[in-house]
């Protein structure tokens, strides 16, 4: 899809880096598996060490694939939001999806016991958390979409999304205030984000939703490019504005919503990767940017996850912290170097 030769080379390089990061991510962790054994296992060969094979098959590969999906999906939804709102500060969560998901998780973890004492903590597991987070995210999203069909001004929509986010965040704060330390800790662990712990089935479901989101955004490429000139110009060039806006929001909802449900609210990637991609490819054409952010986001999250595992140690850092600690300096450095924000 990229047009010029320079872009083709950049893409090839990015894909190679992606593959390298994938292997690296699988090989490093609390137990470091030699790269040679990692390759053999990935290529379907038999490993002499059964425990390595077990770790790779049931833990490392799902985790690496999740990181790829999460990174790609968050970056793409960030790009969609930045173009739709023509705002470089927009990210996948501007519409309140992440706050809604947090609310869902918070109600499940902390609220249920407040409402009914018998509702025991044993209900809280990965699956119920994903369901609660999805429901919360969807609830806020439907509210925003209902408003979106009635409101003409996209900027007002941005503010409404942020307001919904504030409301849900406030409810979460109130819940946190009244809850026990033990449950608060459980909630905070969820909000750290994690790309581990996904079963192959969950991974399949996540993949299906994200693919749908990607397809929707590919169909939106034309209107996204027109939106670069502003909404009035886009409409004058034949973009059915309401439909296009709806598709873009729906796509974001699928991408960011599913990720948040399965991996928690992972910050920063969605905001930063579109900027990094624009710097590398020096274009705002979405035909280039959409594939670029997909690959770039995957690489960045794989790297962040590799670091979060603190290779060789038994500790795991919260991925949410790592994405920001790594990502923010990169963006600052790029902006300082280029002395110009490309948008």
């Amino acid at each position: 899809m990229p047009t010029s030769n320079k872009n083709r080379i950049a893409f090839l390089a990015l894909l190679l880096i992606l593959m390298f990061c994938f292997v690296l991510n699988i090989s490093l962790g609390s137990i470091n598996i030699p790269l040679k054994d990692t390759f053999i296992a990935l290529l379907g060969g038999d490993l002499t060490d059964e425990s390595y094979a077990y770790i790779i098959r049931n833990y490392r590969i799902p985790k690496a694939l999740t990181a790829i999906l999460v990174g790609s999906a968050l970056s793409l939804s960030g790009l969609l939001m930045q173009t739709l709102f023509r705002n470089p500060l927009a990210g996948p969560f501007v519409l309140g999806i992440s706050s809604g998901a947090s609310l869902g998780a918070a109600i499940l973890i902390m609220g249920a016991s407040l409402i009914a004492g018998w509702f025991s903590i044993s209900f809280v597991n990965d699956f119920s958390l994903a369901v609660a987070a999805s429901l919360g995210g969807l609830l806020v999203l439907f509210a925003v979409m209902a408003v979106a069909t009635r409101i003409k001004d996209t900027m007002a929509l941005l503010i409404i999304g942020l307001m919904f986010g504030s409301i849900t965040a406030a409810v979460v704060t109130v819940l946190s205030y009244f809850t026990s330390a033990e449950k608060l800790q459980l909630f905070i662990y969820w909000s750290f984000g994690s790309v581990g712990n996904l079963s192959w089935q969950q991974l399949g479901l996540l993949l299906a939703i994200i693919l749908l989101g990607i397809v929707l955004s590919i169909f939106s490429i034309k209107s996204l490019n027109a939106l670069l000139l502003g909404e009035n110009y886009a409409r004058s060039m034949g973009v059915p504005l309401k439909k296009a806006r709806f598709l873009i929001i729906l796509s974001t909802a699928l991408l960011a919503g599913s990720v948040t449900a399965f991996a928690g609210p992972i910050a920063f990637i969605g905001l930063a990767v579109p900027h990094l991609s624009r710097q590398i490819f020096d274009t705002t054409n979405h035909k280039t940017l959409v594939p670029a952010v997909l690959v770039y986001g995957a690489i960045l999250l794989l790297l962040c996850d590799t670091l979060a595992q603190l290779p060789g140690s038994a500790y795991i850092l919260p991925i949410n912290a790592v994405t920001s600690i790594i990502g923010a300096p990169i963006v600052i450095w790029l902006l300082l170097r280029k002395k110009k924000m490309i948008f």
Binding site: L227, G230, T283, T284
Partner: peptide, 16 residues
């Protein structure tokens, strides 16, 4: 296909 516009508003992205 019938009418085209040039408006007073500036284009949102000038990186084209």
């Amino acid at each position: 296909e019938e009418l085209s516009l040039v408006l007073t508003e500036s284009v949102a992205s000038k990186n084209l």
